Amino acid sequence: MTLTPETCPYGCSVAPTAASEGVAMSERRFPTFPDPSANAAVRRGFGTIGVAAERALPPWVIPILRRRPQIAFFGYSTSDYDGDHTSQEDIFTCSPVTGVIERVIDDRANLTYVSDRNPSWSPDRTRFIIHRGSETDPTSRLVIVSATSGATLEVLGAGHSPVWADVETILHLGAVGDPDDARWEIFALNPSTHASVQITDLSPGFEITGHAWHPSAGLALALVDPAAGDVSVRVASSAAVAVARAGGVPISSAAVAPIGPPDTQLSSPAFSPDGSRIAVATWQPGQGSRVAEVTTATGALALVPGPSDPTLSDGGPVYSPDGKTLAFVRGYEDEWSEIWLYPVGPSTKWSRFFRRRPYQLTDDARGRFKGALDW
């Protein structure tokens, strides 16, 4: 195969493309999580019921629990876990209450390798926009699928890393320039009319590896500076995005402002529902990545408590719809990861009695990699 991964450091936003030759999809490039051999068993915290407990509940209780918004992600197994013998990259959902995982797209019986990644919920939460590539069609394409059956509803065209911003807008990365040396910029695509408008024009100074949108806080971009080797998150105003969407000048590198402390490596941005915070992944050279929150008004950075085992890393954060919880992944390289939750809502009178700490939501016995969460 000749599917080329586009890497988002610690964000698991990787898309197959035909931009260059010679990279097999089996050679996945993900965050580097060091050796997990010293990893001790983790404790499950309050708020997670678990698979066995869910099965013991009265049948009428389970639908009520599952009404809470589910966490979507893509996953695969390289160890034949859950009957996956071909490392297919499928779409899943997970209950934030029970930790129970359900497979939305199931290609385990497909002899052709298919990469389905980066699910983003539609505004009515009935569909996903994903990107898809395969052995037979190596170009990464934007695809709308049913959130319940996984059935393909519509193929929109080439692109990757989609975000369903609103009813009329899907933001995604699209190729610009010479196909043999294309760069990736943000485009706005109307899923009804298929009209597409280029939103950013940052090259040659930066490479975009991920993005997040908030209607008032703006467009957050995870950027790599190839010359300096720096990784940062920068924000363009929603007004600048509106101008570009109306056919005006695309956003340049001069129109994006960095967030967070100076000289800090940041990636994988995700806005809180009110736009006051941006969750990111951050790291120091030679160390595993950590999850943090950046206050948009001040740039202050607050780390989420990391793993007790320093050889593990965290990344790919996303907020719950009510903004009170962060979900992120913790795991080892591209082999396995689990979803963890961390309470981040406003302090209450009870806060002094309970120390906030992350707790593990899923438990696939290190058998499945999970990435690109959307809640």
Score class of each variant (00 low, 15 high):
2 T>A: 11
3 L>T: 09
11 G>C: 15
18 A>T: 15
30 F>A: 06
31 P>R: 14
39 N>R: 13
40 A>N: 09
40 A>Y: 05
47 G>Y: 14
47 G>F: 06
59 P>L: 08
65 L>C: 09
77 S>V: 11
80 D>K: 10
84 D>G: 05
84 D>R: 01
85 H>P: 08
85 H>K: 11
88 Q>E: 12
88 Q>C: 06
97 V>A: 05
99 G>A: 02
100 V>E: 15
101 I>A: 10
101 I>L: 09
102 E>I: 04
102 E>F: 01
103 R>C: 14
110 N>F: 05
114 V>C: 03
123 P>D: 11
124 D>M: 08
134 S>G: 14
135 E>Q: 14
137 D>P: 01
140 S>Y: 00
148 T>M: 08
151 A>F: 00
158 A>N: 13
167 V>T: 14
172 H>G: 05
172 H>F: 15
182 A>N: 05
192 S>L: 11
195 A>H: 13
197 V>D: 00
198 Q>R: 15
200 T>K: 09
203 S>F: 06
209 T>V: 12
212 A>V: 02
221 L>D: 07
222 A>I: 02
225 D>H: 15
226 P>I: 00
231 V>N: 05
232 S>Y: 00
238 S>Q: 11
238 S>I: 02
239 A>M: 12
254 A>E: 14
263 D>T: 06
264 T>E: 13
269 P>E: 00
280 V>P: 02
280 V>W: 01
281 A>L: 02
283 W>F: 08
290 R>S: 00
300 A>S: 12
305 P>V: 06
319 Y>I: 00
326 L>V: 09
327 A>H: 12
340 W>D: 06
344 V>N: 04
347 S>E: 12
358 P>R: 06
367 G>Y: 03
367 G>R: 07
370 K>F: 06
